[in-house]
Every structure is written in C-alpha cells, then in structure tokens.
Simulated assay, not measured.
Amino acid sequence: MQALVKYAPGAGNMEVRPIPEPVPGPGQVLLQVAYAGICGSDMHIYAGAIEFKKYPLVPGHEISGTIAATGPGVKDWRVGERVTTEHTFSTCGRCLYCRRGEYQECAARQSLGFDINGGFAEYVLAASDMLHRLPENLPLEAAALSEPLASAVHAVSKAGISWGDNVLVIGPGTIGQLAAQVAKAEGGRVFVIGTEADAERLQVAKSLGADYTFALGEKAEEGVKDTLLALTAGYGPDIVLECSGSRSGAALGLEIIRRQGTYIQVGLFGRPVELDYEQISYKELIVNGIFCHNWPDWEKALALMAAGRIGYRQLITTSLPLAEWQEGFQMMAEHKGLKILLAPGEGEHSL
C-alpha cells in the first residue's frame, strides 16, 4: 500500500512510498482510510520540531474510514462500518489516569501518527476499543474533523462555561473555529480574535455564530482591547480559550481576561515562551491546559455534529490525493484556508 512516510529526523525527509499492508492483531481492526486531516502537529513533524522515537513512521491522526478487517477477539465491529478512531492506540490500563478515564495522560500511551503508523496511508491499524461509529447523517469528510472537535470539547469542558459567559477565543484556525462553536453551544457569548491576515477566517467564524470578531494589527490592538472591555462592562472576558499557540496571543489573553476569570491554553507553542505569569496571582486566575481528549469528548463531538450544532462544511478547504500531500502541507504553511484533508483512498466526497 502507499503511505506518506517520515523516514528520518530533521526538516523534510517525508515522501510517499510503498509499505506492507498491516494485519490486525487481537483487539485490533484494519481501517481503510477515507480521509486524514493535516494538523499543526503534522507540520511540526515535517519541520523536524517533533521527533519520533523510531523511523520510518507514518504520521496522521485525524482519521475517518471504513473497517476492512477485524482481528481475533473483536466482536462488536463488522467489516464495512463507517468509523472514526481516537489516536490513542494503547495504554497501560492500570495507572491513575487510565483508571480515571483520563488515559490521554498515561505515561505508557502510544498514539497513531506519533508512536504507531498513522492515517496518511491507504490502511491503518486501530484499537477496537478506540473506535466511534459515525451517525448516519455524518459524511466521512466531516468525521475527519472529529479529532480536533473532541479537543475543542475537552477544552470547553475545562472552562466550565455558564449561560451568558463572555468567552474570548484567540486564533481563528480550525481548533479555534471549533472551540468557538462548542462554547456557543454551551451558552457562551463568543468573541473571536485573529490578525489582519485572518480576515477570511474571521468571516467564517462570524458565519458560524461568533457574536463578535476582531482583527488585530499594529494600529488596531488598543482599539480592540477597548472594545472588548466596553462589551464586557469594563471587566474583560470571563473565559479565554487561547487557540493560536502564539506568545502574543497568550499575552493578550492574560492581559484582557477579567479578574478571577478562567484561562485555557489550547494551542501549542512548539517552543518555550516567556509570559507575565504574575497576572495569575494578581488576578486570581484559574489557568488550565488541555492535551488531546477522551471517550466522552469524542461522543459529544459526534453528537454535536450530528445535531447540526457544528458547522463543518465551511471548515474543510479541500481534500487532496495522497500523492499531492506537498500541496496540502504548503497550503497549511501559508495559512490558506482551514482544514486540508488527504484522501489516501477513493474517498466518499459527499460534501
């Protein structure tokens, strides 16, 4: 089968090459991949900022497809079912986090696209207990967004949004767009901030239900801050979801949030950054981070999409054959569009 392989550490060192088709073992299923989304972490992998423990390895962890085969002991799944898979492949099952259902923090966790061959391939192995059936009205393209949506659900659950809370989302990329919609579904009054280069993305956010959108520029920043304060009775937002993964975004979030507000770091910086953390003390902030997601997050994500509470069509810019992966990565690097999907197989193309 064909797969996009990261064959050595460092920048680049990725190519499509033939690799053996995997065979499912006990408790595993073989998925025929329909779509796999290109994530920011995949860009870090391509750039060499994220290194694997072993090479070669197939990236890709935002996966949808159909079951092609089942391994020994798999009883609850049948060939042909349309599914998405969490990228958790295995855990110890015994530690504190596994027993709490927070297995994403298991120190022994192995993940598709990072430790085990992932979804940028025609077929991928997945753990049968990490599969989720797709609602009948959900196309496979949309299901490839369930991974970032589950992360957004996880983030919003940490924020504890109450009806009418003022929620600021910083960064209108895919995860920010999804977090804004989940926050809106929870009853938040949602503000989305981007840069002047995010004009089209901010229009998308507005069309998907954001109450206000703002573009920051050299001359606009103070005006945006003043407007945010005016719209929140002078206090600032109750909750900040920092989705840009930029130092400037985090600094703005800590500055503008109201006293005793809740700050959630969603985006990854990819490097150490310096921030004024004394504001946490002065403002008595609740500060939290998120890493991945767990089973309830995925089920809620799929339910939100099936119920029409999440607009996903506007977020999918294009789907490309695996052979055109470089075009997709270039689009991501140039911030063209939002979610770029690779379609290793023929794809369903139902959108």
Rank of each mutant, 00 (worst) to 15 (best):
I175F: 05
I45K: 14
H87L: 13
F89V: 05
G101Y: 00
E15V: 08
Q181I: 09
T66Q: 09
D129T: 03
C92E: 03
L208P: 00
I161R: 14
F191Q: 11
T88Q: 09
H349T: 00
C292A: 15
Y46E: 13
S350G: 04
I19Q: 05
Y312E: 02
P344K: 07
L254A: 01
V79D: 04
A250I: 09
E105T: 01
L125D: 04
C95Q: 04
I239Q: 03
I50T: 14
F329K: 05
V33D: 08
D238R: 06
K75V: 10
E102G: 00
D226A: 15
A150E: 12
A180Q: 15
R258W: 05
K54G: 03
I340E: 03
A180F: 11
L304R: 08
A215N: 09
L229I: 07
E196V: 15
M331K: 12
E136K: 14
A150G: 10
L302I: 07
R258Q: 14
H44R: 15
F329S: 05
P20H: 11
V190F: 08
T318S: 12
C39L: 12
D297K: 02
H61S: 10
V5P: 01
L252T: 05
R133P: 10
V16Q: 10
G10L: 12
L228Y: 02
E141Q: 13
G311W: 12
E186K: 14
S248F: 02
L30E: 07
M332K: 11
C106Q: 04
L208N: 15
M14H: 10
P59A: 14
L231G: 05
Y7T: 04
G187R: 09
L57Y: 04
K225W: 10
K283D: 00
D76N: 14
G118W: 02
D276H: 05
G261N: 06
V169H: 12
G71M: 07
R258F: 06
C92I: 04
E334K: 08
P22M: 07
G261F: 06
A11T: 13
A220T: 15
A34I: 07
K219W: 10
Q314D: 13
Q104M: 06
E86D: 12
V169T: 11
L178W: 13
M332E: 02
V169P: 08
N13T: 07
G308F: 10
N288P: 00
L57V: 08
A108Q: 12
D297Y: 02
E141D: 09
S41A: 14
L112T: 03
I290F: 01
E242R: 11
H335T: 00
G48D: 08
G93P: 01
A127V: 04
A301M: 09
P148Q: 13
M331P: 00
A126F: 02
V182Q: 08
